[in-house]
Design a protein around this nucleic acid. Structure first.
Lengths: 148, 148
DNA sequence: ACTGAAAGGTAAAAGGG
DNA sequence: CCCTTTTACCTTTCAGT
């Protein structure tokens, strides 16, 4: 199982993936090699699934972020609809959900015009899609990872 | 502006933040020092905002992920409500949105019972919250970053 | 703005308690 | 399971083009 040292390592690396093992080791009064072993263990256990740089969508020119709730025509339409959504680079996340929507997707677009075109020309033309509802995100005041 | 080399670097590091500059350099036939300079430039420009290890919520025991749409009583209630949401460690993302919800939050909980208690004991008791609607995420078939 | 070489630091692997 | 040591690789810096 995950002990306290593992939790400390995860918290530190969630915040900055390039924190040196030496630094984490010093903070926890163990050797850098121990940190290395623990990180490998967490990776093999599937707790750590990867590392990534976080980029600012805004700085890359994507000024608008939204959630789009998609209602499909039929229950069996998920796989086909998903493949078509995957082909849209603006779609960064997709969730199968209970409740009023069949699929909830998160997208980034450069501007309102791009959003409009995405909805009309590439989302609402998907056969399996019955209707969509757009929630524009005005601000994202909380963005963090789950606590280990 | 961001040129082609910058895009290659970002794509590589979005996928794996620990890819060595030496490897990216070889792929793009430049020197490792150039990659280093470019990464620093992207960081200063705010394009790269950080690096993080990605952890599996499931492996950490959080088997349920949901979105909760929150409707507030009054327009001016955002800041107070947000502070109370921030105090809940299960809330990992929050968005101010247009549309039917005032705030959309993403949460992780360990099980259905924890979700139930979160809703009743800690969300619906917030003064500013008028009502909530829960969308349980059954699966997240798409999870990626925006293309540079 | 990129390169090449030098210096320092880090990760990864091996061996021992 | 953790430590120390070792080796090889990597980042970072800086003078030069």
């Amino acid at each position: 199982m995950i002990d306290n040292l593992d939790k400390q390592i995860l918290k530190r690396l969630q915040h900055n993936a390039r924190t040196s093992y030496a630094e984490i080791a010093k903070e926890n009064q163990v050797s850098p090699a121990t940190i290395h072993v623990r990180v490998e263990k967490l990776r093999k256990a599937g707790v750590i699934t990867g590392t990534q740089v976080v980029t600012s969508a805004k700085a890359l020119g994507y000024s608008i972020s939204c959630f789009i709730g998609i209602i499909l025509r039929q229950a069996g339409d998920y796989p086909k609809a998903l493949e078509k959504l995957r082909a849209l680079p603006e779609v960064v996340e997709a969730y199968y959900t209970t409740g009023q929507y069949s699929i909830l997707v998160k997208i980034f677009v450069k501007d309102i015009d791009a959003l409009h075109r995405l909805l009309i020309e590439r989302l609402q033309v998907i056969d399996e899609v019955q209707s969509t509802e757009t929630l524009i995100s005005l601000q994202q005041p909380i963005a963090r990872q789950i606590e280990p």
